[in-house]
Each structure stands twice: as structure tokens, then as C-alpha cells.
Design a protein around this nucleic acid. Structure first.
Lengths: 203, 203
DNA sequence: AGGTTTCTGGATTACATGATCCATCTTGGT
DNA sequence: ACCAAGATGGATCATGTAATCCAGAAACCT
């Protein structure tokens, strides 16, 4: 696939990034369908030809946005040490606080796109699937470490727990977005933390 | 609000229902943005004037679809007795099996719409919020009964647990839809069931 | 410096799609 | 039987919006 990626000049790279950044923000605010390429073009201070010079079409731009957002999210995530209960709690507080600050608008920058593109854009769905796999792996890493250190019950399955935690986060963000209230998000994450606490054991 | 709902004749009601049903199916398959009123019109064997006779505009139709889907979902849900661990497990199996049968396509009939309309259609968001409140109340009812019967630890909070369970379901469905694999859904629900089992106590 | 590639501006096109209109038919009440 | 309200058909309109095109400027390489 991706045959000969034309190399970008310094200026070109900057323009491309400006476009992706503008698109990411707009899409997070209003969703893919309600974000027009015209809006992206204006917000990025670019022209139509620039946009279509760097991206084949709108779906290609959306895929670039997904990857960009996934990088950001996972980067933020990895500032926390998810191999301890305290670290998990800090992460939970961070996520809930962030939701509160933004009045729960937009939901998850990539999760919100999921339902919108999954059934109509196979390629975007694939990019999303890969992104969520990376994300889950990042959470799992913490739990695996916890497990290896003997702080987690031997029969606990870090993969399953990580998947469930990510699902709780996604569902919590979605409900919070719809209710405009962080309570469901807090409840979902607290439930997972309680379960993990239950599986904790002193070394 | 809703000033003088024009009364519908038997035939009119049937047409209206045909339109909502067709719209519900198409929207579940492809999302709101990718479902055109023309498609709905054809799938329902109706004409444009019929569609706009029963609904002010597309958003109004979408709101009707949300309410219809919420009724269906909650109706299905209430065939299970969520006041026992066995009943919860049956419900879990039903949901996971249904996802498997449909190859995880479409996700949740109302959850998938959430991200798509929440930021752009305040009225639809309100309808969704009310629907999820009803849904949560339905789950909570089971847990409250469990609690009242003394089968749940006194310090357990049925409201928080119900919210977390609904979030786990939504997040699980979303991840399953994106991955085309029911595993995340199963993991999310199993985690909640394990937590609830932990909070169980013999009478 | 020359030539090739990359980048940019902006006008223009093509079309999908939500919505309207009006004439006509059907239904239901009294 | 009659009339008002409701229901229907289908053509038509209006416009938002993705995508194209070409001319020309800037950047890069040797």
C-alpha cells in the first residue's frame, strides 16, 4: 500500500500539520459529518488545493486525525503509572477532572468517531481498531507489571482487565457526554478500580 | 411545547410507523449522517410529502427513532431478572450472543447515535439523556431489589453500580463494533459481574 | 544558476440531498 | 350524503459541500 509517499518540505510539513490540527479540533467539537473541509481549510489558513495536495480526500484526512489523536491520548496516558492502585487513582482523577473542565463536551477524541465511521469507512475502522489496540496495550502494561510483581491475584487476567477498563472509560465518556455530567464516567472508572482493588494482594 | 399534535388516522399511524421503522434500521446500519431521507422514503415505500407530513424535518425523525429504539431495548432488557446473579449472567450471555450473531455491526442502536448528535442537536441529546436515564433506572431496579433483599452488601450503591454497568455495556459495544470482535464486550460485562459477585453476600 | 519538484491561490464544477409545493385522493365524523 | 381534516404522489427547488483544475510562486538539489 502507500506506494511512494511524496517527501514533504519543511513548509509542507508545517502546512500539513496545521490542517490536521485544525481538523482534529473541529471534528472533536462537532463530529466528522458536521465538519466541512471548507471549515478545516479556513481554520488552518489554507486553500482547497493545499488540503487536497496533502490528503486524497476527506476520509484520508479523518484517518490522519484519528492517528494524531491516538498518539496524543496514549501519550497523556503514559504519564501515569498504572502499575499501582495509587497511580490508577491519579489517572482516574485526571480523566474525570478533564471531563468536568470541558463540560463533558466532545467525549473521547477517537471513541466518538467510532460509531460514526465504523460502518461506512472500513479503512478508518481499521485505523481505529489499531489505535484502540495500542491504547489497551498501554493500560495492560501497567497491570502486567502489577501482576508480575505479585501484587495482583495470580488468576486475574491483565488483558481482560485492561479491555474492561478501556470499555468502562469509553462508555463512561459517552454517557457523560450525553448527560453533560461526569458522574457516569466517575462511576464506571470507580467500579473498575474497586474490582482491581479486590484483586490486589499484599506482596 | 408540542402544541396540537394532529391526530392520526389508522392509516396515518401505520405510515408513520413504517417510516420510523425504516429509518431506525437504516440509521442503525449506517449512522444518521449516512442515511438520507430519500433512502428512508424508499425503504418505507412512502413519498417525500408523507415523510414531511409526519415529521418537521430530519432531526425530528431522528428523535422519533431514538425513542423507538429506547423502548425496544428497555423492553428486551426487562425480560431478564437483574436482581439475581444468575439473571445478570443470562442477560450478559444474551447481549454477547446477539453481538456475535450480528458480527458486532451497528453497535448500540442508541449509543452509537450519541456521539454523532450530542454536540450538534441539543434536542436529540436531551431525548438521548432521558432514554439513558430510563435504561439506567431499569438496571438499577434489579440491583435495588437485590439490595433490599439483603443479598448485596449494605454499603454498595445500586445507582452507581447500574451506571457503571450501563457504561461497561456501552463501551463494550463500541469497542466490539470497532474491533468486529465481541471480546471487549464480554470482558467489560464480566468485570462488572465479578464486582457485583464480590458484593454479594448470603442472606 | 538551472531545473525539477513541491507548494499555493482561488475560481469553478458537479452533485447529493434536505426540503417545499400543490393538486388530488381518502378518511372520518355528524 | 357531505364536508373538513388528514393523507398521498411526485415533480421541483435550493443549497451546502466535496472535489477539480490550472496557473504561478517558492523551495530544494547538484
Amino acid at each position: 500500500m502507500a506506494p511512494v509517499r511524496p517527501r514533504l518540505t519543511r513548509k509542507g510539513e508545517a502546512t500539513r500539520r496545521r490542517i490536521v490540527d485544525a481538523a482534529a479540533e473541529l471534528i472533536h467539537e462537532k463530529g466528522v459529518a458536521h465538519t466541512t473541509v471548507e471549515e478545516v481549510r479556513d481554520a488552518a489558513n489554507a486553500s482547497s488545493s493545499q488540503l487536497y495536495h496533502y490528503f486524497d480526500d476527506k476520509p484520508a484526512l479523518v484517518r490522519a486525525v484519528i492517528e494524531r489523536q491516538a498518539d496524543t491520548i496514549i501519550g497523556n496516558q503514559e504519564r501515569f503509572d498504572l502499575s499501582t492502585l495509587d497511580g490508577l487513582r491519579e489517572w482516574r482523577d485526571f480523566v474525570v477532572e478533564h471531563a468536568r473542565e470541558t463540560d463533558c463536551r466532545g467525549g473521547c477524541p477517537i471513541g466518538s468517531l467510532g460509531a460514526e465511521v465504523a460502518e461506512t469507512e472500513p479503512e478508518a475502522r481499521t485505523v481505529l481498531a489499531a489505535s484502540f489496540n495500542r491504547w489497551e496495550a498501554s493500560i495492560r502494561a501497567g497491570l502486567l507489571k502489577m501482576h508480575a510483581l505479585g501484587r495482583l491475584a495470580p488468576d486475574a487476567d491483565p488483558h481482560e482487565l485492561a479491555l474492561a477498563t478501556l470499555a468502562a472509560l469509553q462508555g463512561g465518556l459517552l454517557l457523560a457526554q450525553i448527560q453533560r455530567d461526569p458522574e457516569p464516567l466517575a462511576a464506571a472508572l470507580d467500579a473498575m478500580l474497586k474490582l482491581i482493588a479486590t484483586l490486589q494482594q499484599q506482596a
